[in-house]
Nucleic acid binder design. Structure first.
Lengths: 114, 114
DNA sequence: GATGCTATTCTGCGTTACTATATACCGGTA
DNA sequence: TACCGGTATATAGTAACGCAGAATAGCATC
């Protein structure tokens, strides 16, 4: 799927939050999980800016651990604020998705009644 | 629903396209329809930037008509390119929505198997 | 002519994801 | 040892989008 980047705005951060909530993980792995999900074009840099933002907003706890495969990894876990943020994200998503689907399936006559 | 603006990026344009596809309409009316839909905080300026973009990208035809209630209205209708754009939008939406919902409902264990 | 409503237009701003690149660390191999 | 590919974090610059806020226009009514 090409050129969905604009539609991912605001959504990607929620996905990252959700992925972190599943268990301690780090940037590179998050990127791979997003790709497996289907967002194949997501690159490390994008995820990095998101994790930096989460960090800045104090939504995650961070632990640095050594790796046998490269430089030390920064592992993220959701804190209480992050959990709350995630719940709010899902509420927003459900709201928007329901509205969009409503628009999509609405009978296609302007007056509403035939 | 407050502060959903980031999640509306790329989506709002599709909504406007869909509304225009229902029948000839103008900026102010589009704004009202979006509000009725549930996006209560959408303002005229936002819709204006979208219609300007549609115009610039040649996705709409324009007809100016006088109004008894103010300055002349600019009525928009979708042209062929706009129709195509709208179909692509819905495909993108379905793709993203399915992926997000997949993420949302996925069993919450990292390995996937219990 | 002052006010109020409808309606369009315009500008500047903040947020977000992407591109492209740099840096660092390790294992394997020649 | 010197190089390379995979892993992993970091940063600067860019473009797109929606929003706030204000200006302007036209008409009705008082």
């Amino acid at each position: 799927m090409e050129n969905i980047t604009e539609m991912l705005k605001g959504v990607l951060e929620g996905c990252v939050l959700e992925i972190i909530s599943r268990g301690e993980t780090y940037g590179y792995e998050i990127t791979q999980q997003l790709r497996e999900l289907g967002f194949t074009d997501v690159v490390e840099g994008t995820v990095y800016t998101i994790t930096m933002r989460l960090e800045k907003n104090n939504l995650v706890d961070i632990k640095k651990k050594p790796s046998t495969k490269g430089p030390p990894r920064k592992f993220y876990t959701l804190n209480a604020a992050g959990q709350e943020h995630l719940e709010i994200f899902w509420k927003k998503w459900e709201f928007i998705a329901s509205k969009i689907n409503e628009l999509k399936t609405k009978i296609k006559s302007k007056g509403g009644v035939i």
